[in-house]
Nucleic acid binder design. Structure first.
Lengths: 287, 287
DNA sequence: GTCAGTGAGGTAATTTTCTTACATATTTGC
DNA sequence: GCAAATATGTAAGAAAATTACCTCACTGAC
C-alpha cells in the first residue's frame, strides 16, 4: 500500500504544508534525483531547515524515515510517471504538449493499474467465458472502444457484436436472454439511455458488465463493475485518457479469456494472425 | 553508462562471483524487494557473511556503497522493466496479468514519447489546420482508431470522415483533391491496399499523413509520417499497445489543432461538451 | 614439505547518518 | 493578551555504513 507515487503526493500536498515543510518540498521537487542521493544533513542545509524537520517531513508521507523516503522517491522516479500535473497550456508548442499528453495518459494508466481489482477482473472473465453471445455497447467516444472490443473478441469463436447507437442497443438489450453478456462502456456512468438499457437487459436475465465509473447510476445496474474512476477532467474538453484506460481494460479481459482457453487456443490465434500475411508487403531486411 | 538495470547485471555476473559474493547475490535475487529495505547488517546475516563483504559486493557493481546500491535496486524494481520477464505467461492469474498489461502499455507510451518528433507533429498540424476536408483511414484494429479520430475532429468544424473498409477508402482517395488531408493509420505500414491507396491519394494532390511504422512502404508514400516503431510483438496475437499509441498520437494532433485555433475556440468546445448534459443523470454529491 | 606471497574474508574501530528527546519559539483561539 | 496548540531547532544518542587492519587459506618456488 502506502503511496502510489510519492512525488505526486508531495506535489498534491504542497498547499497544506507549513513553512519549513514547504521549503523541504520545494528542494525535493526541484531536483528529486539529487534528493535521492543526498544525506538528511545535506538536504536540511539546502532547504535551510533542521534535520529533524526533514525527518518529520518524511514521516508525514507515510515512510519509516529518511532512508525509506529516499527509496520511495527513487522508485517514483524510476516508474516513469511524471509527478507534476502537467496540463496543456495555451502557449504550449509541440515540444511541450506532446510529452504532456503522453505523460497524462501514462499517469492515468498507472492510476488504473493500482485501482483495478483482480478479483473483479476474474468475475468478469468468468462471465465472458460462459457467454452464449457477447455484446459491446458504447456511445460517443466509447463507440470506437466497443468496436475495438468486438475486433478482439471475435477471435474467441463466440458470437460478438458492437453497437454504438441507442436504438439498436435498446432493441438488442430487450431481445437479450440469460447467457448473453452485455458489456457497457461509459466514462461517466451517468448517461440516462445506457442506464435504462442496463436495467432492461438485467430484466431479461442477461449479464451486464460495466466498464464505467464506480458508484455511478450505471454501475448500480451491472452484474460486474470494472470501475475506473474519472481522474479529473483536465482534458481540453474531449475524452482522452478515459477511453485509453477502457481499451486497456478490454485488453485485460481478452487476455483473461485467452488464458482460460489454454495453450491450444494460441494456435488458433496464430492462424488468424497469419491469415493476414497475404495482404502485406514482406518485412524488409535492414540495410 | 553505468547499469541499465542492476538486477540484470547481478544475475548475469552470478557465475563470475566468488563464494561469499555469490551468497550475497543469492540472497538479493531471491527477494530484491526485501533487500531494498534491509540494513547492511541484516543482509550480511542473511547471507552469512560479514558486513564489509556486502559492502565490497556493492562496490563491485559500480555503486558508491550499500545505500547507493539499495537505491539502484529500488529503481530497477520500479522501472517496470525488471529482470524478470514481464510478458504474460500461461499460468498467470488476474493478479499478475492485469498489472503486466498496464505496464506493457505504459512502457510503449514512454517509448513513443521519446521517439516522436515535435517538428513532425507541427508539420502534421500545419496540414490539418489548412485542410478543406479530413479523412481517417484504418483497417482491422485501426478501424476503431480512425472512428475515434473522427469523433475528435468533427469538433473543429471541418468536414471529417472515417473509413474502415478498403473499397470506400479507395473510392474516396481517388476522388480526393488538393486541400484534402488523408490520415492513414496502420501498425505495420505494410498492408498492400493501404500503400496503394496512399499512392493514389498523392496522385490527386491530396496530403497524406501516416501514423505508421517509419521506413515502411506506406511511410514512403506519405507527405508527413508520424512514425511509431513497432515494439516487438509480444502480444498474445492481438494488437494491443500499438493502437493505444496511435490513439495518443491522435490526441496530440487534436490538441495541436485546438491550440492553433486559439482561446476563443475553447468556448466552442465547451458548448459541445455541455450539450451532453441533458442526456445524463446529475453528478451525485458525496455522502 | 615449508615458507613467502597473494588475496579472500572477518573483526573492530571510526565515521557518517539518522532518530529521538527535549527545549524554545511561534502561531491560533478565546 | 494569554493559554494552548503547533511548529521548529538543539543536542544527545542510536543505528548504520565504511575503513583500517588482521588472519587465514591457498599458491607456487625452492
Amino acid at each position: 500500500m502506502s503511496s502510489f507515487n510519492i512525488l505526486q503526493e508531495i506535489a498534491a500536498a504542497l498547499e497544506s504544508l507549513n513553512r519549513s515543510e514547504r521549503k523541504v518540498a520545494d528542494v525535493i521537487l526541484s531536483d528529486p534525483q539529487a534528493a535521492t542521493r543526498s544525506s538528511i544533513a545535506a538536504l536540511a542545509k539546502a532547504a535551510q531547515v533542521s534535520e529533524p524537520t526533514v525527518n518529520r517531513f518524511c514521516k508525514r508521507f507515510n515512510t519509516a524515515g529518511f532512508p525509506d523516503f529516499k527509496l520511495n522517491l527513487a522508485q517514483a522516479l524510476a516508474s516513469g510517471v511524471p509527478y507534476v500535473n502537467r496540463n496543456v497550456e495555451a502557449d504550449d508548442t509541440a515540444d511541450s504538449y506532446s510529452p504532456k499528453i503522453f505523460e497524462a495518459t501514462i499517469a492515468s494508466l498507472a492510476y488504473a493499474r493500482e485501482k483495478i481489482s483482480p478479483a473483479v477482473v476474474n468475475r468478469a472473465v468468468d462471465q465472458l467465458i460462459q457467454a452464449k453471445q457477447i455484446l459491446f455497447f458504447g456511445l460517443g467516444a466509447s463507440g470506437p472502444v466497443a468496436q475495438d472490443a468486438q475486433h478482439k473478441f471475435f477471435r474467441f469463436n463466440i458470437p460478438v457484436a458492437a453497437y454504438d447507437d441507442v436504438l439498436m442497443q435498446r432493441m438488442v438489450a430487450a431481445a437479450s436472454a440469460t447467457g448473453d453478456v452485455i458489456v457497457i462502456i461509459s466514462y461517466t456512468g451517468r448517461t440516462r439511455e445506457l442506464v435504462d438499457i442496463a436495467e432492461l437487459a438485467r430484466g431479461t436475465g442477461a449479464t451486464v458488465i460495466g466498464i464505467t465509473a464506480p458508484n455511478s447510476p450505471l454501475a448500480r445496474h451491472c452484474t460486474v463493475v470494472l470501475g475506473v474512476e474519472a481522474p479529473e477532467d483536465t482534458d481540453v474538453y474531449m475524452p482522452m485518457t478515459s477511453r485509453i484506460v477502457h481499451l486497456t481494460v478490454i485488453d485485460i479481459l481478452a487476455t483473461g479469456v485467452t488464458l482460460r482457453r489454454g495453450p491450444d487456443f494460441l494456435r488458433h490465434l496464430k492462424a488468424i494472425k497469419d491469415s493476414l500475411k497475404e495482404t502485406r508487403y514482406p518485412i524488409e531486411p535492414l540495410a
